[in-house]
Design a protein around this nucleic acid. Structure first.
Lengths: 334, 334
DNA sequence: CTGTTAGCGCTTTCAG
DNA sequence: CTGAAAGCGCTAACAG
């Protein structure tokens, strides 16, 4: 007891019973005398014993813990987390959010790795946030948020990326912009593909030809977006507006604009996507397309719990939530 | 292999070696023929094997994973998480954020429980966010963020709560307010105590007597703050301003004011504490005291890693970060 | 260089 | 009603 944890063995020895008996008491199994139960419980309380999640899960393969696997805790994933946390309350499950130490996306297949390390043992199921592979196959129920491109073989929660992107670009068109650049996302994600598609569709519908020079891959992250944004804004025929595939890269684009001596929105308008809290805090406050991130987290957890409780089939396996334009101060008419 | 994970046994069998050998290959131990290493590695890749964190940690008591234990994923703890995530990048450690399913604070001692369940096994050390007990004693190095009141026996990261609170109340005083209410925090936390102390000191320094009727416990959470806020704002001699112990309860107070037909800031000014992103998004945007939450997360992780790497002693065991007033639109002169 | 053996903390038959 | 024993997946001596 001196160093480290109190184990079931400590409890058993102190109570003068076997570990098996202690285990039964802990798990409320039948077949223990009331007096024994009480004595053991006493010792547990005194010693402050808590069973090790690890040892237990290794043996019993059921933990009542669900995982949320993310590449990194950034504004998007933490919003998801807030929603998931709200959804888990009162369900008897606990939440384990796992993130590697690597830089975002640096490592393709991170979720497969995490899932392998945690599933079958530590967690009963998982929510994967922007996974980089199609089929993680970790042996436990899994729900994806903002999935990878490809055959949608796993239950998914996302938002209406296509309609949202159209909204963003229509907003710019309505403001009189015609030369509109697109700072794309992570090409491997469905959301990124659809946002670019929406960009193209909206332009075409307005009779504006898409200039390939105006489309760049930004990668959704600040440091991957900076370069492409600079290229776009340094073009001889500079775009008057930029539609960035998410807020983080939109914010990076605003930074770059400032560095280049361009004012936002006077010299260039910028629209983002997501509506993370940070988008409202920036100067100027970012015009963006809102997706209900907390609700996505909530829906994903609820879907997962249904899967875990066996009644999986009755529930929709793909939840798509609406998006809407939030006009703030980073865009203006020309 | 059909269902569930690939285990080390599967790899061993497929490669025609013993599990011990596979283990050596995985962990890069010396004493394995190059040819064998290669063959085993081949099989690992083909099968997509990843060692189980659980089984490994049970045996080796070292995981290179640090835990962040929170009662709930809300705006404060998720900001901490962002900072922690940035700090962990490139260190070789991974991050495991754990949260129970219970409502906030509903359960005193949650961190002791989580720590017991995870430590000595799953995680090498932990950051505790607003713990409810003084000494969790889980047998692993621990750093607290915004600690419990009482003898500071563990390494701690916090902000200058006292000075921050004084700033907030001086701001209100400067605007001409004299009847200033205080919606307190969680009485068991040091931060809460200091914020109330700052409130009292600032008032006294200005020659204003503290009216006990104007001080209520709000508990830091939305649903615990609503009642006390209503009481405060329904007083016959209503305060003209409220200093709430954190943003979440400040936001709740604004809600309550609206319900009661009071305008903010016209009828009542409100100041919060923390500067969570949500505080800028509310209507009206909240005047608040900023504490560098992401930096707190970063510092906590760095402190913890130092503790883990043994070179613990040379480093300060208590990091206190500065606070500053952020004047927005929820306060005005009378 | 490789395999055998023991055991981490716990749950689960199965005897007593 | 209680305990002995096996085993979850893995690592760490120690023999061979």
């Amino acid at each position: 007891m001196s160093a480290g944890r109190v184990t079931i063995t400590d409890v058993a020895r102190t109570a003068g019973v076997s570990v098996a008996t202690v285990s039964k008491v802990i798990n409320g199994r039948y077949g223990v005398a009331a007096a024994t139960t009480e004595r053991v419980q006493q010792v547990i309380d005194t010693l402050g014993y808590e069973s090790s999640l690890v040892a237990r899960s290794l043996r019993s393969h059921r933990t009542n813990v669900v995982g949320i696997l993310v590449a990194e805790f950034e504004p998007f994933s933490t919003e998801i987390l807030k929603g998931a946390s709200a959804a888990i309350a009162g369900t008897g499950y606990e939440l384990l959010a796992y993130s590697g130490g690597g830089r975002h996306g640096s490592e393709v297949g991170w979720e497969k790795r995490y899932l392998s390390r945690l599933s079958g043992t530590l967690i009963d199921g998982a929510v994967l946030v922007t996974p980089t592979v199609v089929d993680p196959d970790g042996g436990v129920p899994v729900v994806a948020i903002d999935p990878h491109t490809g055959p949608a073989d796993m239950p998914t929660v996302d938002s209406d990326n296509l309609a949202g992107a159209v909204l963003a670009v229509e907003h710019l068109l309505a403001l009189g912009h015609r030369r509109i650049g697109h700072l794309g996302g992570r090409p491997d994600l469905e959301s990124s593909r659809l946002r670019e598609l929406g960009y193209r569709q909206a332009l075409q519908a307005a009779g504006v030809t898409v200039d390939p020079a105006l489309v760049r891959v930004g990668g959704y992250a600040s440091d991957t977006a900076t370069g492409p944004a600079r290229e776009l804004l340094s073009l001889p025929e500079r775009p008057t507006a930029l539609f960035a595939a998410n807020d983080t890269s939109a914010l990076a684009a605003v930074e770059v604009a400032l560095e280049l001596g361009l004012r936002v929105p006077e010299d260039v308008s910028v629209v983002g996507f997501d509506n993370v809290p940070e988008s409202a805090l920036s100067r100027p406050p970012l015009t963006t397309v809102a997706q209900p991130m907390q609700r996505m987290g909530r829906e994903a957890v609820e879907l997962l719990l249904h899967l875990l409780d066996g009644s999986g089939e009755e529930r929709a396996t793909h939840v798509r939530l609406p998006t809407e334009l939030v006009a703030r101060a980073s865009t203006r008419a020309i």
